[in-house]
Design a protein around this nucleic acid. Structure first.
Lengths: 193, 193, 193, 193
DNA sequence: TATGAATGAGTGTTCATTCAT
DNA sequence: GATGAATGAACACTCATTCAT
């Protein structure tokens, strides 16, 4: 019974994850999940109290760690003078571990969370990073935020893309490094001297 | 009556566009569109055979021009030796014109096409551009495509972001230039010598 | 095993009773009953063939005795001339015993029988008593039944209210007496001389 | 169109009223209402935004007037010394008008509001009246509230019963008077001297 | 022709009941 | 025999689509 419950839970979570990743939260119906998982709609409710809870089961842990990261980032300043920008936090072991461990949760939060309580997490992250980057740019105020938003989003989406396509930690690490190189250099081109 | 019909069509398209962009395709009901456009739901169906059709009406032209651009791009090589990379095509008057003229259609294709016949357009564009960029990178083959995809996507999303937030052609142009500067420099960091 | 079964039956009945009285029949699920009783849902069906059956198990005895009382009452006349009205039957030891012994079954019949085979018992009792009271009233025929129904219902609901709120036989008895006093005097005011 | 809407609204309200009165709010499904009214489930939502709203449409006005009455009653004291008890408020023209005008709304609130926002109105009224009556009774404190609750409930249920069965204002009035006579005299029997 | 009333399939959710283990 | 997993019909509610007027 314990076995079964765990097994069914796992099967349901796994199929839900696939569908949510493919189609997004709103466009995935419990009917679909039930069919893919080979159970009835009613059975879904033996393991999860609602569709939302099912989604959160797949994302809560990632969201919590992401929020913690955000809090830490908020306190830091992005100082070009130091030579190291704090978005290089993405190279820290701690963050990379999180990225690897929370891979699918992060993907769901970043790409398919519309209609859930996490739908503002990605925009929030982008805005926060953009607010750090904007003052550094050698561009009139009006446009610096726009460009900073693009940069912030690119960085975040780049990380997500790597996560999506690389399973091995060393590959993730190596490509994150390259992404940061690309991103740093790109930003440099528009920095105030 | 022809006049009237044309006028209604236009009003409907315009309101649908706003709503699709603001709330997304799924979360916009025909009721909302009809109300905003000041016509009856029945009239919607006199002008458009379905909700999907209405979406295509708003995107077909942009999609066609985008596809044409894709075809032309496919033929070109991105040669770092020339000093000018062909993704700088985004600076050409022709492309900028298209971006400005098809602005909203492009935004819809890029952000709301999931589940429609254009859902592969953005990924297709990214793949194509990535395929051009990848061979230029000083990275092992396995990873170069991954990074190239990130770069291509960043470029495209950056263009979309500018389109979304700048109404004046000269602002669009100026920021596109900065985006390309950022992007080129970023790529340079990973180019083969 | 017989013992066990009997024990489980008893526990289930007891918890079902509590829940039905507290939350009502409809708002009580078999899940709740099973949990409170510490048995599985399957076991519920070993003892009772359905939720309705469970309800009847809790009410059949009370219903039978109530019906018997009804039959006896039907034969009697409520004669004001005797000085004792037969609704004072509620003061008889026999009836009080029944009230106390069938307390919860009666409460269920009186308050939760909608949709069950006993849904007509309370109205039936009221009608019967009303039919006895009506001819005694110094009111035109048309209205005497209406008033008699009110009186009958008040009496019955009053008894039910006492049963619900007093556990000790002597308290029940004392309050029944007061209720009858109140009721008798009230009726007196409208009696034919 | 206006005509139709009004007509359908009326038909739906009327059938809903019947069903709610017969079966209660919870046990009446929109399916039933739709069938009885000869419209589809979807059509219900053209006129009413939800099942609850449909119920409130039938009861809001009555509830508001009832609450107003409650507020006024709360301020009054039930003084046996005056010879007139304030529950004789039920004889005032104003109250009788309300009873007649809000007949069905009151019946719904008083008998079938379980599961709605008005489910506590009847118990609240009874408690309030009981609190006024209890101190007047020549019974130990412990039991006086119990008896007062019975009396209060009887009075209210009696009014409801009359309402349910008499359509003509003069019949309602006449029977209310008799009910009050019955009730007053009944209470007298237990009053402190 | 234009309208909006009407529909019905679909959504998430609950729960009495059944049945393999 | 006992369990609880599994079901399926029902619930309130939404919405693209159709069609009588």
């Amino acid at each position: 019974m314990q076995d079964w419950k765990e097994e069914a839970r796992h099967k349901i979570l796994s199929e839900a994850q696939h569908l949510f990743l493919e189609r997004g939260y709103d466009r995935t119906s419990l009917q679909m999940i039930a069919e893919k998982a080979g159970v009835s709609k009613g059975s879904l409710y033996r393991c999860f109290t609602s569709k939302e809870e099912l989604f959160y089961e797949l994302t809560d842990s990632a969201a919590a760690r992401l929020k913690a990261l955000l809090v830490r980032l908020r306190g830091k300043r992005f100082d070009p003078a130091t030579g190291r920008r704090e978005y290089q936090i993405f190279e820290s072991e701690e963050v990379i571990s999180m990225l690897l461990e929370e891979k699918y949760g992060l993907l769901l939060i970043m790409e398919q969370a519309q209609g859930t309580r996490y739908e503002d997490l990605r925009p929030g992250m982008i805005d926060m990073m953009a607010a750090k980057i904007a003052p550094m740019l050698a561009v009139d105020e009006e446009n610096s935020l726009l460009l900073a938003q693009i940069m912030a989003r690119n960085l975040i989406d780049g990380v997500v893309h790597i996560l999506k396509n690389r399973l091995q930690p060393r590959d993730v690490r190596a490509n994150l490094q390259r992404l940061l190189e690309y991103h740093t250099r790109g930003i440099d081109s528009l920095l105030k001297k």
